[in-house]
Design a protein around this nucleic acid. Structure first.
Lengths: 127, 127, 127, 127
DNA sequence: GTGGTCTAGACCACT
DNA sequence: GTGGTCTAGACCACC
């Protein structure tokens, strides 16, 4: 199955996001080898050129390096990796704040709400 | 365009979510008339039965009431409306916490990060 | 509309029951004139012969008397009328007891449950 | 014969009632497997979608649970089951009281009448 | 095989 | 005009 190409983003950007998340989560660790362009293309049922573009862009972004004839690897630079993680976190935060603002909940209230939530979850309480 | 039916949820649930958000945001205020089933069906390019199902479910959920031969309306009960808003907020929070946990950031850190973010935003600073 | 001929009973019996209920409720009072066979046939969209049979049977049962050339009337005999009322009540009770028995509730418990219900209803309480 | 679709209720509600009664009576015991949607549709000579709707509603009500690809089952939760039984009993009582009220018999008299009836039945007497 | 969703088009009841 | 129900037949996902 085409591993879900729905969300109205260019496919190559979706591929990038996919790898960004995998790397940020540590599923693809520092220095790990990415699947080949061809493999990824088959797995995602996408044209190899599209995957190629995504890989190039990831290299430009900096968290992937390509060694000719060998393949693509997650960077070894821990600064880049934590930077990636921070960027994703930042995006997540902004999305969250935007959503809550749409419901009329100000950023100033969020810290308290989260603390409250964390407390409830931590104690396994339901109410 | 069929107003975006991507995200892998049944269409009727997407329709419900759409209205839930509109109501929670106040775009559809207390007592406001919803577009007719047929109108919504045309606007979203979807079968009227699908919309019908969504409308019935919304009535069951409680934030929409229906008057035979007249149409469907957002409930007048403010308790239900704030309940709806709270539920959406709760869902948003949980999604956020899950995302952050996937990046290795614990719930306990989030409050501080948000406070930090709010502070920076308040000063118009950018990282 | 054919005033509902569904319940898998011969139509003439359904017509009888209809009148029995109307009389027992007092909607058709002692001595009141019934609509003519023809009127009832039209109103219920039924063959006049069917209505005729029902009227004859009601006369046989005793709560309706027919005066040739004038029409049919609810009996004047109060004993018959209370008898009719009692019979319908009896049927209602038996149906009720049968239903409850099917749910495993014995007749001996019913009095208490009803008292309980009447008490709650009388006080307008919800619980 | 289409297993009697007379009483002016939507078919899917009649299907629900049918199963509610069967469960409340214990004919379908705790954890028992319901016939598949298609089987029920054939047996009742009704469109499978109509049955599907009934099954989904029963799951929503809570006395049926559904396992994708396997079938639908009566809930294992005894609380839900007794709740169902109580609800049906309650409805039966209300119907009964309404009928009797239409005959001019007050709720306050019913307990005595029932006690009387139970007593007579217990002695094998007939009025 | 199971349940779940969607469409198309019909008919009804209420206003 | 409105919502409510039903049918027919299709396709999907899970097991």
């Amino acid at each position: 199955m085409p591993h879900q190409f729905n969300e109205n983003l260019p496919i190559y950007l979706q591929i990038i996001r996919r790898f960004e998340v995998a790397v940020a989560r540590g599923e693809l660790a520092q220095g790990a080898k990415l699947p080949s362009v061809r493999e990824t293309a088959i797995e995602m049922q996408v044209n190899p050129n599209t995957v190629q573009r995504a890989y190039q862009e990831m290299e430009r972004i900096g968290f992937v390096t390509t060694k000719r004839g060998q393949g693509s690897y997650v960077t070894d630079d821990p600064v880049v990796l934590t930077g990636l993680r921070d960027r994703l976190a930042q995006e997540s935060i902004e999305r969250f704040i935007t959503e809550m603002a749409a419901l009329g909940i100000h950023a100033s209230e969020l810290a308290a709400m989260l603390a409250n939530y964390a407390h409830r979850a931590g104690n396994g309480q339901s109410e």
